[in-house]
Amino acid sequence: MIFPSKLRATLAALAIVGAFGTGTADAADSSLYDLQPCPDSLAAQGGAEPSRKWDLSLSPYTFHWSGPSPEHKPVRLVSLDRQLPGGRFCGLALFSNSFGQPSAYGYVGQQWNNIFGNPKLFSKVSAGLIYGYKGKHKDAIAFNSSGVAPAIIPSLGYTFSPQESAQVFMLGTAGLTFAYVRSF
């Protein structure tokens, strides 16, 4: 997939900003943990260190509230979240939007565990910027300016094991995205 130059520039800027974060990994950790794409300033003070460091999400399907449309293309998403103390996280999602346009979502968020007293249920809310809705589809997302728009995305998840879970992301008036999540 070839990304437009503005998207490449946005991704490069996120990578450069993230490279200046300082990791807290010890020598026993993989070198992957040495890179911290989220600034330490996002970490909660005095919070316990999360048992997992990263979440990799893969989404093969998005359900649209408006039903099938000839304009809609399959939405494919991959995202990587960095887990921080205090249930906080940040990350980057790369996806093809509902109109087949290459898109990205850079975000920060908060996770709450033990929803409704069930230790396997959790909820998340992320907030950030989405890039990619352009041309005749620029109005498909609110507050879009030059292909960049703010977004708040809540989700509900279910943990199958310490390494595997599933999540459903609510995309406002557009629909739901279903994802498999692998933690490591």
Rank of each mutant, 00 (worst) to 15 (best):
D81T: 09
P154I: 08
A174T: 15
R76V: 15
F160G: 01
V125A: 13
I16P: 00
N113F: 14
G172W: 10
D139Q: 12
S145T: 12
I130K: 01
A127E: 13
H72G: 07
R52P: 00
Y61E: 03
T159D: 10
G175Y: 10
A149P: 04
P4N: 05
A142F: 07
D81G: 02
L176F: 08
S59R: 01
P119R: 00
T173N: 10
Q101D: 07
S145V: 14
P85E: 15
Q111I: 13
G109E: 08
I152T: 13
L80R: 04
S183Q: 07
M1L: 08
S30P: 05
N113Q: 09
L42S: 00
S155P: 06
F116L: 15
S126C: 06
Y61P: 03
Y105N: 01
G117I: 13
N118E: 14
K120R: 11
S30V: 13
S183V: 08
Q45E: 14
Q167T: 11
T62P: 04
L80I: 10
A142S: 09
A142Y: 06
T173A: 08
F3S: 06
G47M: 08
I153P: 06
G128W: 12
A12T: 09
S57A: 13
A166R: 00
K6S: 14
S98D: 13
S66L: 12
G109Y: 11
Y133R: 05
L80Q: 02
E71T: 14
G18P: 00
H64D: 09
H72P: 06
F89Y: 10
F89P: 06
S155C: 11
A28I: 03
P60H: 03
A12V: 12
M170T: 09
L58E: 05
A93G: 09
F89D: 07
R52N: 02
F116I: 15
A179W: 02
S103Q: 02
R8L: 15
K134I: 13
I152C: 10
R8M: 15
L77A: 07
R8E: 15
Y107K: 01
S98W: 08
Q83N: 13
S183D: 06
G46R: 04
F143S: 03
A104N: 03
I2D: 10
A19I: 04
V17W: 04
A142C: 02
A19R: 01
Q167P: 00
Y133D: 00
L58P: 03
E49A: 11
G147T: 08
H64L: 12
L14E: 05
S5T: 11
L171C: 07
K138G: 02
K138C: 08
S145E: 07
D34L: 12
I16N: 01
P150N: 03
P37E: 03
P70W: 12
G157I: 11
A28G: 05
F116K: 00
P119L: 11
G91S: 06
A15W: 00
Y107M: 04
L80K: 02
Q83L: 15
V181L: 09
S123G: 14
F143V: 02
S57H: 14
G175K: 04
W112R: 03
G100N: 04
V78Q: 01
S98F: 12
A12D: 11
P150H: 05
S146D: 10
W65S: 07
G18R: 02
D139R: 04
A44M: 06
S126T: 11
F99A: 07
K73H: 15
R8P: 12
Q163S: 12
Y33F: 12
Q163M: 09
P4I: 09
G135T: 07
G109K: 01
L80A: 06
R76K: 09
I152Y: 08
